[in-house]
Every structure is written in C-alpha cells, then in structure tokens.
Design a protein around this nucleic acid. Structure first.
Lengths: 175, 175
DNA sequence: CTTGGCATGTAAACTGTTACATGATTCT
DNA sequence: AGAATCATGTAACAGTTTACATGCCAAG
C-alpha cells in the first residue's frame, strides 16, 4: 500500500511520466521499496482516480501517448498526512542468508562459489550507490537541498553494503 | 517459494511441530525471511504431499493433535539441491526509509519523533540479536558446530543494526 | 482471574511477479 | 544489423496479510 506514497514523493520532487518515474525508482526508492513497471502504471491510474494527481497527455506518433503526472494539492496533503504516521518495521527477504543458515549441508566449495557470486553483486551495488551519490554531489545547490533527505537514504545503503562485505570476509574464514 | 526451503532447513536442524517451527522462525530465519503461522502450516501440508517430510501425529486432549515433522531422505536431497542454486538478490521493504526520502515535506519535530520511535525499534532488535547470540554461545559443542553457519547470519544482523544506529545519528544532525 | 504458552487451521482480500504485447527512433 | 531508450499497458498466477475460529492448562 506504500508504493502509492512512494510515487507521491517522487512526483513531488519532480513530475514525470510512468516510464520516467520507473527509471527514477530504480536509482532511488527501489533500493528499499522495489516495484515493477506494471505496478507503477497501475498505481498511477489509481492516483488519478483518487484525484491526487493531474495528468497532461501528449500525443506522440508511433509511441503510446506520454502521460505526465504532477501533484495536486490533495496529493500533497495525502503525502504529508502519511508522512506523520508511524512506520511499521522494515522487512528483508534474502535468499542467500537462507542458504548460509543451512550451509552445514553444503560442501565448502559450493559455498565459496555462492559467496563469490554474492560478493560481486554487493560490490556492484556499492559502486552504484557511490556513483549515484557523486552525481548528486555535482548538482545545483537548490537541487541538493531538495534532495538532502533522499540522498541520506543512500548513505544507509552504503553503510549496509560495507558491513555486508566485511561480514562476507568473516564467512570466508568460517567456511 | 523459499519458505519451503526455510522449513526444510529448520526441520533438518531439529524436528518439531508447526508451532515450534514458527517460534524458531521468529528467532532466526524470520529476520531475513518473514512468515506468518498461516503460511507455515500451509507449507508444511505441501511438504507432506511432496513426500519430503514425515509426520508423527500425537493425540492430545483439549488441544489439536501435535504434528511433529521430520525430514525424509528426499527432503534432504531437495534441500541440498536448492542450496547449490544461485541466490537471487535480497529485497528490502522499509517504510521508514520511504518517509526519510520524502522528509523535506515533514516538519523537523515530526521527523525527530519518528526517528526516536525507530531508534527504539532498532535498539530492541540489536539487543534481541545479542541475547540470542549469547544463548547460543553457552550451548553444548556439538550444537554450536551444527548451528555455526546459522549463527553467523546473526552477525550480519548485528552489523546492520549497528550501522543503522550510526546512520540515525547523522540523520539527527541533518534534521 | 487474566495472561501467556501450546496447537491447529480456513477464507477473503490484497499485493507482487511473470508472461505477453507493440513499435518508433537513436546509438553503436 | 542489433541493442538500448522511450512509452504504455493486460492478464494469469503466486505469494502475503488480515480476519476469523477454537480451547485447554499452568503460572502469577
């Protein structure tokens, strides 16, 4: 039920099409609130039905119409009222940790192989976080200010990936 | 689809009833693979249909029959074959981070209040991890060995919560 | 006398994933 | 010539959450 508010937050920062919103999700909110484009398009229609967004339709030849979403007053209110509510606990689903949990049934070689693959994934994620952070650092001042908190969520991602990498070294020793 | 394998792993470590398995999930696997008791009971029936587990039914007066699940050979094979497969990426859903992302729309006071509430949650989780870890430390040697990898997953939880707490101090300064 | 632990489930509603579907333009 | 980007969706299926349902026994 919170993809709805994720979208409000993104449109609030900058209006855009479903496609644009989706690509922004992949570089920000998606790290702690994953979504597919199918979910996004569906939710945007619901946001329109709720009257929380305005849509400007631009005709295009060969492509589907561009539907640019902007926030209405009621949308800002909805966002603000949701913001003040207490957050429920975070949920993590990590199939690799499930495998580590049962790893006494796995040969050392197979575990090391899995571990190497996961290390690559996590290192790539860390690099990605760093590159997004750098791009934000070179943005104009008023943008930096607006994205101040959004950017801080990246910091946690960076800390987490660093902790993961440290932890994986210890797992290496255990295996 | 992996609650199935989570259950195989737990039963492998020690047989038990759905109720017992559920309470063990809450202190271990549940931290990175949440499940409700409804899911667990349903999945256990499916495991039985697949022929991966044996069930000993014990009649009880006043209470529903105790159904104690143990792994069969085929269950161990299923677990082992799943263990060697590559893990897909972890998924996180954190409504608080969503709120931080949009926090420029939130008054400082309200943010600080949310932050205090979350700090309590995370500190409690960290304390819980520590207490589980200590209980394992005082277990007999053969148990410690069997739970070696399972226990290591706790370490990551501890690192994560410590990183979170550090991060939240920085957020405090930003707000 | 009330809270917590033991012990199992059904059913509806909601959310999320995967497969399918189309097609122009620009870059390599 | 092929891949990536832009741009939007439908539909079936799988998985998750929430509400409902029951009831004994032991400990405080």
């Amino acid at each position: 039920m919170s993809l709805r508010h994720a979208l409000l937050a993104l449109i609030d920062l900058e209006p855009g099409t479903g496609y644009d919103l989706m690509s922004r999700i992949e570089k920000s909110i998606g790290f702690f609130w994953p979504a597919t484009h199918q979910q996004v398009y569906k939710e945007l229609h619901q946001l329109q039905e709720l009257g929380w967004v305005d849509v400007q339709v631009e005709n295009q030849s060969g492509k589907p119409d561009r539907r640019v979403y902007t926030l209405r007053e009621s949308g800002i209110h909805a966002l603000e009222s949701w913001l003040t509510q207490d957050s429920s606990a975070a949920k993590i689903r990590d199939p690799f940790l499930l495998r580590v949990f049962a790893a006494h049934r796995l040969e050392t070689g197979a575990l090391r192989q899995q571990l190497a693959q996961q290390k690559n994934l996590h290192q790539a994620t860390l690099d990605l976080y760093h590159s997004i952070d750098e791009r934000l650092r070179s943005a104009p001042d008023h943008v930096q200010n607006r994205y101040r908190f959004a950017r801080h969520t990246l910091r946690l991602g960076i800390y987490y990936e660093q902790a993961w990498l440290r932890w994986s070294e210890e797992l290496d020793e255990l295996a």
